[in-house]
Nucleic acid binder design. Structure first.
Lengths: 211, 211
DNA sequence: TAGATTGTTAATCGATTAACAATC
DNA sequence: TAGATTGTTAATCGATTAACAATC
C-alpha cells in the first residue's frame, strides 16, 4: 500500500490523526476538511494533506474527508487490526499497569503471557495473563512465536533479556527501560518509552523563560 | 546561558547525551571525543558538536571532552539540579509505578504529594508520599506552589483536572493520559507520554517490510 | 454552474552533515 | 612541532508550508 519509504516524522503523526478521528467519530462528526482538522490539532492543513498522500488519496475535492472512512484507512495503514502477538517481561509496577490498564488489542496486539523471576508471581495470573518463569523463555518463544517483547524489567536485566529475545527471533521490542539497547540483529524494531528523557525535557522547558 | 531559541530537536537529545555521559562516567571513562561518542550513540560527530555549541564550548581542541565536566554542564543546562516541585494526580497503577520506581529527584523534581478520589487511598501514604482528596487541590496549590502536575488519572477526568491545575497557576504538565490537552493558558508546558501512539508506531514499523 | 477542497507541485524553511581553519 | 579534535561556517538534505490546477 505504501509508496516509497515513509519518513518517521510522518509515521509518528499517524496515531495522533487516528486518535482525533476516533474522537470526532465518537462525537458524531461524519465529515471533516483538512483545514478543520488542522485547526483542531494545531498543525497546518498542508501537512495533513501531504501526510495522507503518502499513502493515497482518501478525500474528495470540494467535500473533504469522510471521518469514518479515513479512520479505517489509517487503522489499516498502521496495522492495528493485525493482532501481533506480544509477551511482557517483568511484572513490577509498570508491567502490571500495562497489563491491567492498557488495551493492547486496540493497538494491534494480543498479550499472550508475562515472564518474571520472583517466586510469588510465577505461576499466577495477572489480569488474565499467565506469569511464567523467565527460564522457560526460549522454549515458550519457540512454541508460541510472539512478535514483540515488552521490556518492563529492571535496567540491569534488560540487555541480557533483550538479547535472548532477539536471538529467539522476536521482531520488535517496546522498551520501558531507561537504556539504549544495542542489539545484534538490526532488523529488530525498537520503540523506546523513556520516562526519564521526557521529564528532563520538561525540566528544561520550565526553565526556558526566566525563573 | 542559552543563546537564541534552541530547537526542540536539540533539547530532546540532551537527556540522551546526559544518560550516555553518566554511563561512561560510571564505567570510569574520563575523556571522550565527539567522534567516539557519536559512534556509541549511532549519530554523527557533527551533530554532537553542533548541539553542544548551542550552549557554549565545552570541549578542548586536540583533546575532546572531559566526561564529568560535560555531564555536569548538561545537567545545568537541563536544570536537573533545580528541584522543581511536583504533585501527582491519580494513584492508579501508573501513578503508583511512578511513585515507587521512578526517581523524580534525579530528574530535577521533588514529588510533594498525590491526589485521588477513592476512599481507600485518600489519607494514606504511598512510598512516603501523602495522598490527599482532589477536593483540596486548589487550597493545596495555593499553599505549596507546586510547579508541575503529573497526570496519571483516567482520561475522562483529565481535561477538568488539567484545567483546574492551570487555573491555579501550575507551570507544567507531564501527561500520561491518552488525550491531547487543550489549555487556556498556552505558556504552560505540556510533555506527553502517549503509550498508545508509541505502540501503534511500533505496529506500523513491524509491518513495514513484508509480513 | 459556482464554491469548496483536495491532490500535488513548487518554494521556503530548518536541521543535519561536511569541511576546515583555529588551537590545544 | 606534529597530531588531534574542536568550534564554526558552508553545503546538503529533508521536511514543512504555500500555491494552485484539478475536480467533486
Amino acid at each position: 500500500m505504501a509508496k516509497d519509504k515513509i519518513s518517521i516524522a510522518v509515521i509518528r503523526r499517524l496515531p495522533r490523526y487516528y486518535r482525533h478521528l476516533d474522537e470526532l467519530l465518537q462525537s458524531g462528526v461524519t465529515r471533516m476538511s483538512s483545514r478543520q482538522l488542522a485547526q483542531r490539532m494545531g498543525i497546518t492543513a498542508s501537512q495533513i494533506r501531504q501526510d495522507l498522500n503518502c499513502f493515497g488519496g482518501f478525500g474528495q475535492q470540494g467535500y473533504g474527508y469522510n471521518v469514518e472512512y479515513l479512520k479505517n484507512e489509517i487503522a489499516a495503514i498502521l496495522g492495528v487490526n493485525k493482532l501481533y502477538k506480544a509477551i511482557i517481561l517483568g511484572v513490577g509496577n509498570i508491567g502490571r499497569a500495562l497489563i491491567n490498564n492498557f488495551s493492547f488489542e486496540k493497538r494491534g496486539f494480543q498479550l499472550l503471557a508475562a515472564f518474571d523471576v520472583t517466586e510469588d508471581v510465577v505461576g499466577t495470573e495477572i489480569g488474565g495473563v499467565p506469569v511464567f518463569h523467565i527460564d522457560g523463555l526460549e522454549a515458550y518463544i519457540k512454541e508460541n512465536k510472539p512478535d514483540v517483547g515488552v521490556l518492563t524489567l529492571p535496567r540491569s536485566a534488560a540487555p541480557e533479556v533483550a538479547s535472548r529475545l532477539v536471538n529467539s527471533g522476536i521482531h520488535g521490542l517496546w522498551n520501558f527501560t531507561n537504556i539504549d539497547l544495542h542489539l545484534d540483529n538490526d532488523s529488530v524494531k525498537v520503540e523506546n518509552v523513556h520516562f526519564s528523557d521526557s521529564l528532563m525535557t520538561l525540566c528544561y522547558r520550565l526553565g526556558e523563560d526566566g525563573k
